[in-house]
Design a binder for these strands. Structure first.
Lengths: 308, 308
DNA sequence: CATCGTGATAAGTTTTGCTTATGTTAAACG
DNA sequence: CGTTTAACATAAGCAAAACTTATCACGATG
């Protein structure tokens, strides 16, 4: 089998340009015999002579001309390849596929997406909104680079980093606004509206209410926090929402927000990725951008709810 | 400077295809450490990881995917390069630029061109018709591969091979058809029509007539043998034409052909090329095709002129 | 917990490729 | 017409690259 090397192609191109072994060799930073040998090897492999050596002239054969004509584009493509690498090595660049759970995505995305694409110029951000289980599956299959969800996950193959903690707030009908905040244990007797099965936020809420066995009879499942809040506004019950959703979701509903006394329910939001992902360092940078973006924002939203 | 090799690109492509170091290595006919090392070197040079190694899974990084996507076309181009060489090595193929002098071209070309393109399938024949001096110049400059002209040339850098010898015939007005053929020395007193300056055939004719100094007064210069013959038919004088031109040029003119007694004037037609031309062997084959084609043809034309 | 699959690493050997020095050939020059 | 010069080929020696075999390390799996 033939075994042409890029070196030979570079030498051949130089020789074609300079029409002179010595100068071509100098241009390639090697000595003339080195270049001569490579050209000779190349010609031997090809079975045809590329260069017609005269005593004082060097000229391409017809075949050599056709050959060199094709060599140029090849070498340029290889150079592009090296450029591609150089462009990618320092900062995160190109496609980043990030999954976010539904109780985070709509609130986090608007403030974070802009900062990410500003920080990482040339970043091609792909976001997928799915339940935790599906995100973890896609992460394992390599169809996602990272995911933002509620910690802990506890998968051994996944690296977890915390982004921020946030409280859960009680959402009541506006008519209840001035009532005292019920203690934790009182919740189990109230009509608690929850997200449908599969949302981790549902489990976290149930956990806080110390309601071991879900009682489907009494709870209407909503497919989004937005729906739940509207249901509360209609007097169908109460619900919990994470703090980051508060200002958005309660703006257009007749509901009142209340903060629980300690122990306050809360969740830890974090980012995960495969431990084997070589973009780990860049993903840490992404995590930091999210942290920086959300830190002030979370605090600001907390101030909107009087501590009751 | 980066120094990516084709070998690395081939290994990377194989690894991307097989998703497995061992199998990719086998496909490349090397051992796994060899392939591993090359991939590692490649990644180090690029400054980015191409493959994400899991314990049981191997997956392309986003960068690796973009990289391999570009590698395919490059490797295919290189393979095409090797195909090009294989196609060219056995027989003459591709462009052949051949120069022919005007007193040969129109007669030789029709019978030879067909035979050449039949013999050398895929031959791309380019013919240039010029005077000897211009042909030699173009040959030296590499703008022609070979030339067919009258020998000898005597250039040290040129290889000469004979193709055939041919007589010069006397062209007289038809009214002179039955007169005896004038002896060589009588020609200098006749009104001899010749080609314009620069044609070697002019010099050869003059040489035969032993007319050292051309006498422009008495000679009208024609730019082609065809014109000369027509002038003879109009009674303006006599001329000489090479045998191969005889049947074509005298068919439509009121002239008579006559063969000289010994010593008959003649010329040797041959082929020349640069000694450094690597196509020498193939050019010898071309010469042989021309010889074979013309041998019978010259003899046949000779029979048309009675030996007087 | 032991085993297996898989890639990384180590040591040793072959191959490649480079450099310096010298040979060869043909054109150019006096 | 012999000498010089230009230019590529060849030779010898050496350094670096690349391959092979053998072994290690690690995580998944039963």
């Amino acid at each position: 089998m033939l075994n042409v090397t890029l070196k030979q192609l570079r030498y051949a191109e130089a020789l074609a340009r300079h029409q002179h072994f010595g100068r071509a060799a100098a241009a390639c930073s090697v000595t003339q015999p080195a270049l001569s040998a490579q050209i000779k090897d190349l010609e031997t492999m090809l079975g045809s002579v590329l260069f017609e050596r005269g005593a004082r002239t060097l000229r391409l054969t017809a075949f050599g001309e056709a050959f060199v004509e094709r060599v140029g584009p090849i070498l340029r493509s290889v150079d592009e390849l090296e450029d591609l690498a150089r462009a990618a090595q320092d900062r995160l660049i190109g496609r980043l596929r990030i999954g976010i759970i539904p109780t985070i995505a709509p609130y986090l995305l608007p403030v974070v997406a802009r900062n990410l694409t500003d920080t990482f110029e040339g970043l091609d951000l792909h976001v997928r909104e799915s339940l935790t289980s599906k995100l973890l599956e896609e992460l394992a299959e390599g169809r996602l680079d990272t995911a933002i969800l509620a910690l802990p996950i506890g998968e051994p193959g996944l690296q977890e980093v915390a982004l921020f903690d946030e409280e859960f707030l009680l959402v009541r009908p506006l008519s209840d606004a001035n009532k005292p905040v019920p203690p934790q244990e009182a919740l189990r007797h109230m009509k608690l509206l929850l997200l449908e099965e599969g949302h981790c936020f549902r489990d976290q809420a149930l956990s806080f209410c110390e309601t071991q066995a879900p009682r489907p009879r009494e709870m209407l499942d909503g497919s989004s926090l937005s729906t739940l809040v509207q249901m509360v506004g209609a007097g169908m019950g109460v619900t919990l929402i994470p703090q980051m959703a508060a200002s958005v979701e309660t703006r257009s509903a007749a509901v009142a927000l209340a903060r629980f006394q300690a122990p306050q329910p809360q969740r830890r939001v974090g980012m995960v990725w495969r431990r084997t992902n070589p973009l780990a360092e860049q993903l840490q940078q992404v995590a930091q951008v999210v942290r920086d973006t959300t830190a002030a924002w979370i605090a600001e939203q907390a101030g909107e709810v009087e501590p009751v």
